[in-house]
């Protein structure tokens, strides 16, 4: 018997469940360390050196270097933890969200001003919506 995971067929969405939390533990805890100003400085000064102290996978380290947030999420990152990375870079949630959708920041901002992304066509994988 397996647990029911009804959220697996929602397009463009990763639910931070038990599997993802285990996969992303060290990545997310690395992100938490950036809550301290001195750690943010050390990370900015030498990203590779700073990350070497955390037992992340090489794939996770590379995704951080690339600021590839979708990849980080696929590797167990959670957006509230990843926020510490883009905060360190001086970016906002809107900047990060735009980046994850593949839109320019301006196009994303305009979509939001226009009422946001509609749920129509974006509820189930295969509906071919814009999410």
């Amino acid at each position: 018997m397996a647990l029911d995971k009804p959220y697996m067929d929602v397009p463009g969405t990763t639910i931070f469940d038990a599997d993802m939390a285990r996969k992303g533990y060290h990545l997310n805890q690395f992100c938490m360390s950036l809550m301290k100003a001195e750690n943010r400085q050390a990370f900015k000064a030498d990203e590779a050196k700073y990350m070497a102290a955390w037992p992340m996978t090489d794939e996770q380290r590379q995704a951080v270097r690339d600021r590839d947030f979708n990849r980080m999420i696929a590797l167990g990152g959670n957006v509230y933890f990843l926020a510490k990375i883009f905060a360190t870079d001086g970016h906002t949630f809107q900047w990060a969200a735009a980046r994850m959708t593949g839109m320019t920041e301006e196009a994303y901002r305009n979509m939001m001003l226009g009422g946001g992304r509609s749920p129509e066509g974006n509820r189930y994988i295969g509906e071919q919506g814009n999410g």
């Binding site: 969405t13 990060a96 959708t101 946001g116 992304r117 999410g131």
Partner: peptide, 17 residues
Amino acid sequence: MSHQLQGPRAGLINREF
């Protein structure tokens, strides 16, 4: 209320809900 901050579906809003 409605919002999604992650992944390609970020920006979802559902005024009706």
